[in-house]
Computed example of a mutant assay.
Amino acid sequence: MIPRPRHDTIAAVFDGCYTAMVGNMLLVLGCLPLVALALTTDGARAWPLYALVAPLCAPGLCGVFAVMSDYSSGGARGLLRTFGGTWRATARRGILWTAAATAVLVVLGVDAYALWGHRVGALTLPILAVLAVLTAAIALLGLVTIAERPAARLRDVARVCTYLAVRRWYLTAASLLVLALLAQLFVARPAIALGVAAAPLLYVVWSNSRYSLRAALDPPTAAARST
C-alpha cells in the first residue's frame, strides 16, 4: 500500500514552489534595467552600459537574498514585505558597494585587454584574472552581508568578506560556478533562466555565502562564550 504524503510535506513543497516563483519575479523586477539591456543589446559592444546599470540591481539582489533568508528561517514575514523593506534599507549601501566592485572589474578588464597579445601579458594576465575572480567573490559575499546587516559599514564588510572569501575558497568557487551556470543558461534560454532556474540556483549561492559568513553574522552562543 502506497503511503499518502503528509499535509505538512505537501505544504512545504507548495511553499517552496511559491517562494521560488515569487523570487524569480522579484529578481526580474529588481534587476529590470540590466535584464532589459541583456535582452536588447550586444554585451560585447554595450558593456559600458552594463557597468553603469549593474549597481542599480544591488538592492534587488539584497531583497531576494533577504527573502531566501526569511524562507530558510521559517518564513514568518511576507515575501513582498521582506523584499520591499530590504530594498529600501540596502539601496544606498548596496549601490555603492556594487559600484565599487564594478569599477574594479572594469579597470581589470581594460588592463587585461590592453595587455592581451603582449609578452608582459603572460605574467600579468593570470594575476588580473585572480583579482577579478576575488573581486566578484567579495562583491557577492558583500551583498549577502548587506542584506543581513543593512547598517554595516562598507569598510567592515570589505574586510570581513575578503578574509572569508579566501578562507572558504571552496564555497566561494562553488558559488561562482553556479552563477556562471545561471549566466550561461540566461544567454541560451532567458525565459527558462528567469522563470524557473534563477531562484533555485541563487538559493544555492545564498546558502553557500551565508555559511561562509556564519562566523561574522551569527552571534556566539552562551556555550561558545563560556569556553
Score class of each variant (00 low, 15 high):
residue 199 A to V: 00
residue 85 G to W: 08
residue 217 L to V: 05
residue 41 T to K: 11
residue 82 T to N: 08
residue 54 A to W: 12
residue 73 S to A: 15
residue 159 R to V: 13
residue 87 W to L: 13
residue 112 A to R: 06
residue 22 V to N: 01
residue 226 S to Q: 14
residue 47 W to H: 07
residue 177 L to G: 08
residue 40 T to P: 05
residue 194 L to A: 10
residue 29 L to N: 06
residue 186 F to N: 03
residue 18 Y to I: 00
residue 132 A to R: 01
residue 227 T to H: 09
residue 150 P to K: 08
residue 116 W to L: 14
residue 58 A to M: 06
residue 211 Y to L: 15
residue 27 L to I: 07
residue 96 L to K: 01
residue 212 S to C: 11
residue 83 F to C: 08
residue 28 V to S: 04
residue 117 G to R: 05
residue 226 S to Y: 06
residue 121 G to Y: 03
residue 4 R to A: 12
residue 20 A to H: 08
residue 91 A to N: 07
residue 32 L to V: 05
residue 81 R to G: 04
residue 193 A to L: 11
residue 30 G to M: 01
residue 25 M to G: 04
residue 22 V to R: 09
residue 126 P to M: 01
residue 15 D to V: 02
residue 42 D to G: 04
residue 72 S to A: 15
residue 40 T to H: 12
residue 212 S to Y: 04
residue 147 A to V: 01
residue 151 A to S: 14
residue 44 A to S: 13
residue 120 V to A: 15
residue 209 S to T: 02
residue 174 A to Q: 11
residue 73 S to Y: 11
residue 126 P to D: 02
residue 102 T to P: 04
residue 22 V to D: 01
residue 151 A to D: 15
residue 199 A to M: 13
residue 76 A to F: 11
residue 67 V to C: 12
residue 25 M to W: 12
residue 201 L to P: 05
residue 8 D to Q: 10
residue 109 G to A: 06
residue 12 A to M: 06
residue 77 R to H: 15
residue 5 P to R: 10
residue 200 P to W: 00
residue 224 A to S: 09
residue 46 A to S: 15
residue 98 T to E: 14
residue 93 R to Q: 14
residue 133 V to W: 12
residue 89 A to P: 02
residue 36 A to R: 04
residue 3 P to G: 05
residue 224 A to D: 10
residue 11 A to V: 04
residue 199 A to L: 02
residue 54 A to V: 12
residue 167 R to P: 00
residue 100 A to N: 04
residue 124 T to P: 00
residue 212 S to K: 05
residue 100 A to L: 14
residue 112 A to Y: 05
residue 225 R to A: 13
residue 121 G to C: 08
residue 80 L to M: 13
residue 49 L to N: 02
residue 118 H to S: 15
residue 191 A to V: 15
residue 52 L to S: 07
residue 4 R to M: 10
residue 154 L to I: 07
residue 129 A to Y: 02
residue 200 P to Y: 02
residue 81 R to F: 02
residue 202 L to P: 04
residue 194 L to G: 08
residue 149 R to A: 11
residue 118 H to A: 13
residue 1 M to K: 09
residue 77 R to N: 14
residue 165 A to H: 03
residue 17 C to I: 03
residue 201 L to V: 07
residue 33 P to D: 10
residue 16 G to S: 10
residue 73 S to C: 11
residue 199 A to K: 00
residue 218 D to P: 00
residue 75 G to V: 00
residue 187 V to I: 12
residue 176 L to C: 05
residue 9 T to K: 13
residue 210 R to G: 02
residue 41 T to P: 01
residue 95 I to N: 08
residue 145 T to S: 14
residue 164 L to F: 10
residue 221 T to H: 06
residue 114 A to R: 14
residue 85 G to K: 12
residue 29 L to M: 12
residue 130 V to T: 07
residue 165 A to R: 04
residue 38 A to D: 07
residue 25 M to S: 08
residue 124 T to I: 15
residue 53 V to P: 07
residue 171 L to R: 15
residue 115 L to N: 00
residue 117 G to D: 01
residue 143 L to T: 03
residue 44 A to K: 11
residue 26 L to R: 07
residue 1 M to N: 07
residue 183 A to K: 04
residue 36 A to Y: 11
residue 129 A to V: 01
residue 45 R to H: 10
residue 203 Y to Q: 08
residue 166 V to R: 13
